[in-house]
Design a binder for these strands. Structure first.
Lengths: 201, 201
DNA sequence: CCAAATTCTTATCTTTTGTTAACGTTTTGA
DNA sequence: TCAAAACGTTAACAAAAGATAAGAATTTGG
């Protein structure tokens, strides 16, 4: 994919948050950078500040933590979604999360510095504030659902719900990542699947 | 507490997000309403759209879900914090959460309609967008931490962490609410506390 | 002030999950 | 193409959590 195609996908992808006129777009896009990440390479690592946000035009990433030498996968992002170690980006503090490309991934990126410049530029400030608000609000809603599911549902119920709503994750992610995402071990998810199969008979 | 005191606490409380000059404040505060909620009364209930956000100047609320006839407490808000069934407020769709006053609670409120009016008012729009962005970002960070704790920690580890960071919750909330908040049953939290006591010896 | 409700702990029993390891299958990458 | 790595299932056992119930202490609300 060439840069112009990537930018155009990005512009289309963020339409639901904000639309720029041509003059604005010219300035805005000067703050964007097209960037590729080879499979298994890292977008963010712990102990470092993640000073950028990406928007995936092709590929996918996973978010994971390392505990006692083991990976624990907490989240995924696919095409048309943002990537960042959000808390680190927003607070400017070092993060605790690995963000790794699961396949060769192409993204449109902007840095914290660029975001701050745009927020300080009267031509863009208003729309960037709004853009940021709407994106943060959307992620807030996702997180709210996720927390509620941990509080109110059993692992089996969480998996059943994922079966009915999580097409992309189920199709594109190996099962042991999905287990982590649900807050359980891969062995436990395998058993849950078995239980469901038997109950279905 | 009289209305003027409440408004002043509110203005002080949101300073970290946005500061208004006197002219802006006059307009902004016309969209605010001071409101009291008696203990055990509801700020929001499931199946209804929560069309308002409050800022607690005195009191506290808890958020809970009902599952199989049982309460499951998911969160709390105290003085100087916002209250809403956020997803319902942001999306305009009916919520799934009860939000209930734990004590007589006084808050400063604005409705979705007021927020939309302010966003449409050139005098306030920019600051309100920014205000909304910063608040959403902060809550996003809280939720991120919470999800990570469910993914990477055992219930015991979550409780230990709460012991070191959750002063207010621990002091003001009964233990069975805290158990729910940690994603476990009250009985299980009681056992965890016992284990910790024994290990400490 | 007192009965009722709430809160916390403890015990018992059942169910589920975690841990570790083994095994066959599939995928990967050199 | 082929060895190594990754993946999913299963088993066996230990550890933890859920469900239920009982009982004591505390709080509450009229």
């Amino acid at each position: 994919m060439n840069n112009s195609e990537a930018l155009s996908l990005f512009r289309k992808g963020i339409e639901k948050y904000v639309e720029f006129n041509e003059a604005e777009w010219i300035v805005f896009s000067q703050h964007l950078k097209i960037s590729s990440l080879k499979k298994k390479h890292y977008f963010a690592v712990p102990e470092k500040v993640c000073d950028k946000v990406g928007f995936i035009v092709e590929g996918a990433v996973r978010y994971f933590h390392v505990k006692d030498g083991q990976d624990i996968t907490g989240y995924f992002s696919f095409e048309n979604e943002f990537v960042s170690s959000y808390k680190s980006f927003l607070t400017g503090q070092p993060g605790f999360t690995y963000v790794q490309a699961l396949a060769d991934t192409q993204m449109v990126m902007f840095t914290k510095k660029d975001m701050d410049q745009m927020l300080a530029n009267p031509m863009l400030a208003y729309k960037i504030e709004r853009f940021g608000r709407l994106v943060a609000e959307q992620y807030l809603c996702c997180y709210e659902d996720r927390v509620v599911s941990f509080i109110t549902q059993t692992p089996e119920e969480r998996y059943m719900q994922l079966l009915s709503t999580g097409r992309e994750i189920l199709q594109r992610m190996p099962q042991h990542y999905i287990a982590n995402y649900l807050g359980i071990t891969p062995v436990s998810l395998s058993r849950i699947r078995r239980r469901i199969l038997i109950d279905a008979k």
